[in-house]
Design a protein around this nucleic acid. Structure first.
Lengths: 334, 334
DNA sequence: AGACGATATGTCAACGTTAACTTATGGCAA
DNA sequence: TTGCCATAAGTTAACGTTGACATATCGTCT
């Protein structure tokens, strides 16, 4: 069932079949009909391998992320796919498990398909260099960046919004606020922590960070540990959706109620947070907008347009819901 | 940077390079070293297109699902990938948006890469035939099936568990229970509805179903409509995670509290449900086990082992948490 | 009438890789 | 000494597709 089968069946050359299928050069109406009938008759399906080999690259864009079960990446994938599909490009999704070796393997795998470009959310402490990325020709970083690597990147204004969230808790009267963050080497952790620390220091408060591998289980453990070590804690900012889940789990473990006993502002919204009791206040990350922006940058690169190796910032915003209250002590004034 | 570049650089033939890289036939230790040095020197990366063209198929398995932002599919993808990667197979993920045309397009796309097999969660009322699937050689359906199409499939015991959930509500005293389901044409909807109806009828109760497109928004709307039309409703079973989210949203809209005013049992667990107030009782779907099972069936098919075109059932189970209470009326006995 | 452009189709080669075959050398048993 | 096998490496062809070029017919303009 190759193009030659069709050609033989229609009594024309392979090239003519190719022309009909690609709608290229000159083909008479009669021949076109014969060819299409033959395609139908033999059940021909084009072979991407042959086409891509000839073209020296594949109509794909690689997307390497850490974990598709993190809703942030699932939404990102969906947004990216929507834009790229319109241009006939296929997203090739690979998980790195936030592991350096796996990341390397997945990048080589993507590379072996000679894609049109690479979208990458690098693993923690990724050791990738500009040279590694250069072999993809076109590349855009998403969400996370790599220190020392100049590349176009799409991020959100994490420092600003995290500082805003922290100030919100301070304004509600909290003084002992913990930041439950992601992995300590991730650029996202750094930026969000920076925003938190800046706000704490501006208010003359001492910061307390704890790091997790951004799973609910690890955040749950981190929060209970923090609460045991620092019983005065009355509030937290949390790194992302799984971490927020873990914090809620930890509060439940410690029999603390939100917002009566403990206040919380999360980073990245999720559908259930609006209807949680209490509704969880969050920094809503503009995931879809980030995906669209990244996809557009990729298309710019593919089309040969100039793209500066700078961070493109898509702003998030604080959604005030019900998870912030006055601190415990404030209810029993001295 | 092809194999020929390396060959020239090492002063050997292309075939010898291929032998070294594939660890195939006889190669002297000295030549091996020379070749590996040349690979390093020219920065050679294998080209999957060439290899796959030669091999007439790609070391890929297609995975066509409806929506990666549905956590069920994200978890499924992760489980499948873990198993297949160990065998050197790459998952190629495509979204059908639960849309027949898109499904067809995505299947043709996957097919054009001549993968080793297809894992499919068919779109609602999919019109795919065995013949369509046959062009993939190996295929396994996951979660959903296609009426009239004999194919190996991995499903969970939806009827049973949904009946169990319904009985649980009935046992708590509920008589007016609504099922908030998925799309009315989906086999998953059918099965879950069947279980619900069977339990209702066995108890002499009249069933009430409403259908959604399995998004939170549509379930939210469906539930509020149902409550307006049937104010006596005191409980619901819900179809999946997004629908459960929508039901909770709808309850919030109607100022109904769970479980005081309204009881709920969901289908498919999610991390936040355990810490929700109240914790949501659910039928936990064994997503990871389903993924592993499906991946194993796929490997069996790829290895040429016999796989019966039957449904492989992975059992789920009811997790009793806090979202089921006595019905409103029961608190004010007549 | 001759020349030229538009239309229509065919032939060839190449994209990168590897299976199958061929060639060549050395060692060793008969 | 012959014959065979293990080792080592090269040559050819093919996987499916399409760009570049070649060929051929026709209408139309000078």
């Amino acid at each position: 069932m190759t193009i030659k089968t069709v050609a033989a069946h229609a009594g024309v050359s392979a090239q003519t079949v190719s022309r009909v299928l690609r709608g290229n050069g000159y083909v008479s109406e009669e021949t076109r009909r014969k060819v299409l009938a033959a395609v139908e008759a033999v059940g021909y399906r084009p072979n991407a391998m042959g086409r891509s080999l000839r073209a020296t690259r594949t109509p794909m864009v690689g997307l390497v992320i850490t974990d598709i079960t993190n809703p942030f990446y699932a939404r990102l994938h969906k947004a990216l796919e929507a834009v790229l599909r319109r241009r006939g490009l296929t997203l090739m999704l690979l998980n790195s498990d936030d592991n350096l070796e796996t990341e390397q393997e997945q990048l080589e795998l993507v590379n072996s398909y000679r894609p049109r470009g690479l979208l990458l959310a690098p693993a923690v402490r990724s050791t990738l260099t500009e040279q590694d990325l250069a072999s993809f020709g076109n590349y855009v970083l998403v969400s996370r960046t790599i220190p020392g690597v100049a590349a176009p990147a799409v991020v959100t204004n994490e420092q600003e919004t995290m500082a805003e969230a922290t100030r919100e808790l301070i304004a509600a009267g909290h003084r002992d606020i913990v930041a439950v963050l992601g992995p300590s080497g991730a650029t996202t952790t750094r930026r969000r922590e920076d925003g938190y620390r800046a706000a704490m220091q501006a208010a003359g408060l001492g910061p307390l960070s704890c790091y997790t591998d951004q799973t609910a289980g690890s955040a749950r453990h981190a929060l209970t540990e923090a609460l045991r070590a620092h019983p005065a804690l009355t509030a937290a900012v949390s790194f992302n959706t799984p971490v927020t889940e873990g914090v809620l789990a930890g509060l439940s473990d410690m029999k603390l109620f939100c917002p009566e006993d403990f206040s919380l502002i999360g980073f990245t919204d999720a559908p259930w947070m609006e209807f949680f009791r209490p509704p969880i206040s969050v920094i809503a990350q503009p995931v879809e907008a980030m995906g669209e922006r990244a996809a557009e940058l990729m298309l710019d690169l593919i089309d040969g347009r100039e793209v500066a190796p700078v961070e493109h910032v898509v702003p998030g915003r604080l959604l005030r819901r019900g998870s912030v209250g006055a601190p415990r002590s404030a209810r029993y004034p001295e």
